[in-house]
Design a protein around this nucleic acid. Structure first.
Lengths: 122, 122
DNA sequence: CCGCTACTCAACCAAACGGTTGACAACGCC
DNA sequence: GGCGTTGTCAACCGTTTGGTTGAGTAGCGG
C-alpha cells in the first residue's frame, strides 16, 4: 500500500485511532496547543505530535503559529466527505431493503394461499 | 495497539482501506459471494476473505451459508454509529464557529470607528 | 546572548496489516 | 464415494504504524 491513495482513506484511517478521535472531540470544543492536547494522555509529546501530523495529512486539522506555540484547529469540512460517502451507501442499502420488503409483501399478497401453509420454508 | 478497543475504531479502520470500501459500495447494491466480491480485484481469494473478516468484525457485514457459498450481506446500521459520532463533533465545531462569527460581528459593530482606521494591522 | 518553553525531526523497535502460498474443510454433483 | 467448487485457516513476509528516546529548531523573556 505504497501510501494512502486517497483523502477518504486518510480520513478514515486517522479516525480509526481512539486517541486521535479523542483529540478531534476535544478540538471541536475549541483550538488547543500541542502540549494542551498531550496533557491527558500517557504518551510522549512526540507521539502526540505524530498523531497531529496524521490528522493534518487527513485534512482534519490545521496548525498555525503563535510564538512558540502551534495552535491546532479542527477543520470540520472534511467530515462532509465521510458523511457523504456513508450516507450514499446506507441509503442505497436501505432502499434495497425496502424494495425487498415491498416485494415480499407483494408475494405474500399474491400467494398468501401457499404462504399460509408453507411460508416457513427456507 | 493490542487489539482494537472499541467498535468505532474497528469500523473506521475497516473503511480506511479502499478495497474494503469498494466492497461495501458493491454490497450496498446487493449481497454477493466471496468469489463474486473477489473477481474485480487483483488479489488472492484468501486476501479477500481476510478483508471480509475485518468488515465482519467491525459489524459492517454478516455472512450466512448457502451450500459451499458464503453470501455476504451489508449491515448498514453500523453506519449510524459513525454518522452520529461525526455529526456530533461537526455540529459542535460549527456552533463554535458561529458563536465566534457573531462575536466578531458584535465587536465590529461596537468598535467600527477604530477598525475603519487601523483594521489592516497585523 | 543565554536559557527556558514549545515543539519537530530522526532513528529505532515491536506489533499490526495486507499480501502471499499451501493445506484442508464443507458441500453439491456425477 | 470421489471430484470439483467455494471458502477458511495457518505460516510466513515486507511495509506501515504507534510508540520510544535523543537531538535540534523557533521564539519569548531576562
Amino acid at each position: 500500500m505504497v501510501e494512502h491513495e486517497d483523502r477518504l482513506s486518510r480520513v478514515f484511517s486517522a479516525l480509526a485511532d481512539p486517541t486521535r478521535r479523542d483529540m478531534v472531540a476535544r478540538l471541536a470544543a475549541g483550538d488547543a496547543t500541542v502540549s494542551e492536547l498531550a496533557a491527558p494522555y500517557d504518551v510522549s509529546l512526540q507521539a502526540v505530535s505524530k498523531h497531529l501530523k496524521v490528522l493534518e495529512d487527513a485534512g482534519l486539522v490545521s496548525r498555525s503559529r503563535d510564538a512558540q506555540r502551534r495552535p491546532v484547529h479542527l477543520d470540520a469540512e472534511v467530515f462532509d466527505l465521510m458523511t457523504k460517502w456513508i450516507e450514499r451507501y446506507r441509503q442505497q442499502a436501505e432502499e434495497r431493503y425496502q424494495r425487498l420488503d415491498a416485494l415480499l409483501d407483494r408475494l405474500q399478497g399474491r400467494d398468501n394461499d401457499e404462504s399460509k401453509d408453507k411460508g416457513a420454508a427456507g
